[in-house]
């Protein structure tokens, strides 16, 4: 991704800052044309993704770094969606192991990945080459569907799960 992002935020892995990021994402999403309900869900998905980095990537350490970049997607000269990329330097995990849990199993936790996939059109988890993980999410204007193009790859360009 060579083009500069439309929005870039760097934050520490301290959950105290999540509220500010989700407000930013919600506000901007509404401003560019997402309906209120979708903007709230986009903010929720970003919030969940950042919380997962803090919880599982940095194991609740608050001094890790997280980078959030948002790219505008245009089609035929008009805004058509966002590509949102979140990167960290935390613990690496096999992308194929990042799964939502069975929703029939009613227990606390494990819902964040489900919500991200439910809200976004595309969800891609990758290992970064050096350290940490990269999550790329695409949300298209007018779409209210669960992610269908979800892929998981590592830095070697490995496989894609449906």
């Amino acid at each position: 991704m060579n083009a500069p992002p439309d929005i870039a935020v760097e934050l520490s892995s301290n959950p105290a800052y999540l509220c500010g990021v989700r407000e930013l994402v919600n506000l901007i999403s509404r401003r560019v044309g997402f309906p209120d309900g979708q903007a709230s869900k986009i903010a929720l998905a970003v919030d969940e993704a950042l919380a997962n980095v803090m919880n599982h990537g940095y194991l609740r350490r608050t001094d890790g770094r997280i980078w959030l970049r948002i790219y505008r997607i245009d089609a035929q000269g008009a805004f058509s969606g966002f590509r949102i990329i979140i990167e960290d330097e935390g613990r690496q995990v096999d992308p194929s192991q990042i799964k939502s849990r069975d929703l029939a199993d009613i227990r606390p936790g494990g819902l964040g990945v489900h919500i991200i996939r439910e809200v976004m059109d595309t969800v891609l988890y990758e290992k970064r080459e050096s350290t940490g993980m990269r999550l790329t999410m695409v949300k298209l204007l007018g779409s209210d569907a669960r992610a269908t193009g979800s892929c998981c790859t590592d830095s070697s360009g490995g496989g894609c799960r449906g």
């Binding site: 989700r22 929720l44 919030d47 969940e48 919380a51 009613i106 227990r107 606390p108 936790g109 819902l111 964040g112 919500i115």
Partner: peptide, 16 residues
């Protein structure tokens, strides 16, 4: 005004 999955998890714990 806002609830994310940790809030849901807390309520699921309460349900248990």
């Amino acid at each position: 005004t806002y609830m994310a999955t940790p809030g849901l998890a807390t309520l699921v714990e309460a349900l248990q």
